[in-house]
């Protein structure tokens, strides 16, 4: 059986787990290619007008997979950590896709709810596995193997290695923090190659996924009321942490237009950055954002940082 996984949204968080899980169950995993202009265009055409850009791109990826696989894996992620929840669009993603794209193969969409306890995950794992085998031992084994793969990839990220980059970063010009949702940071088509550009220019790039969980938790502890979105906790925690770090020269926040979480979190991170006197650049992107405009703003920001560093030393 061929299981399709779209290279978009939660893919960037959980791909190793999903891939290993389905391979261990004897499936062939088909992943959609990295975002291309055609995929994005297709997504924009089929998705509703008001949904945010990443979700439109997700539609494109799923449409791309539609006639290549027997089943597409799109979990309904309600909550991926105890006491938190996900963006409503993650929860209703499978339903959005089902109603917007015609002629889809069946969607495998287990409901993941870890709000009350971690056991919610196991339930979802068995629901997903049952579509392929009835042997619970095999399902559990595949899950354990998947978890190993996920942890290994997390460790790789935490050692400072960006996904898709074999060589270690040069970083001779200094360190910049790039924060935002993983599907913006690691999809270089969607972020208009901002991260690539920084690496080319010789900056070392830090992302939220490189921080250990304890650091993020400590940064979140300064809030009177903890954020209830797990994705929001990562982005805010990373922003608040990087704002206090002396080796980080500036923070670049990649946000999507129409993103509900970012509308609050950009404001909150900006407030922390201003408090600590850390340069902060917010790039809001959607399908209409031009590469030239982003380039100009990025250059101006980098000039500002270079100038700041120079005056500080002198």
């Amino acid at each position: 059986m061929r299981v399709g996984i779209a290279r978009s949204l939660a893919y960037y968080d959980y791909y190793p787990l999903w891939e290993t899980f389905f391979q261990c169950l004897g499936c062939q995993v088909v992943t959609s290619p990295a975002t291309t202009p055609e995929i994005a265009k297709q997504g924009i055409a089929v998705a509703g007008d008001d949904v945010c850009y990443p979700v439109k791109v997700m539609h494109g990826h799923v449409a791309e997979l539609a006639n290549k696989v027997d089943m597409i894996f799109v979990p309904r992620l309600f909550s991926t950590a105890v006491g938190t929840c996900e963006c409503p669009k993650f929860i209703g993603l499978a339903d959005l896709l089902r109603h917007s794209i015609p002629n889809l193969p069946p969607l495998l969409s287990p409901y993941v709810n870890m709000y009350a306890s971690k056991r919610g995950l196991l339930k979802a794992v068995f629901v997903a596995g049952r579509a392929i085998t009835f042997n619970p031992g095999r399902i559990y084994g595949a899950f354990l193997a998947g978890r190993q793969a996920l942890l290994a990839s997390k460790r790789r990220l935490q050692s400072g290695q960006l996904p898709g980059l074999s060589r270690p970063q040069r970083g001779d010009k200094g360190t910049l923090a790039v924060i935002g949702h993983p599907y913006n940071l690691y999809d270089s088509y969607s972020n208009l190659r901002v991260v690539e550009r920084l690496l080319q220019q010789g900056y070392r790039v830090l992302t939220p996924q490189m921080l250990p969980r304890k650091t993020l938790e400590a940064a979140n502890a300064q809030l009177r009321k903890p954020l209830f979105w797990s994705a929001g906790r990562v982005v805010f925690g990373a922003g608040a942490h990087f704002a206090t770090r002396p080796d980080v020269m500036g923070i670049i926040h990649l946000a999507s237009f129409g993103c509900g979480l970012e509308s609050l979190i950009t404001d909150m991170v900006q407030r922390v950055a201003v408090k600590h006197g850390k340069p902060y650049l917010l790039l809001t992107m959607d399908e209409h954002t031009g590469e030239a405009g982003v380039e100009t703003r990025l250059e101006a920001f980098l000039d500002l940082i270079t100038w700041r560093e120079a005056t500080k030393c002198g």
Binding site: G48, D50, V51, K89, G92, D95, G258, G260, S263
Partner: peptide, 18 residues
């Protein structure tokens, strides 16, 4: 009726055509 960028209502909005 929905406010711009309302997350839950956008999901409903996309399902309503069906």
């Amino acid at each position: 009726v929905l406010p711009l960028t309302c997350m839950p209502e956008i999901i409903a909005e996309s399902i309503l055509p069906t």
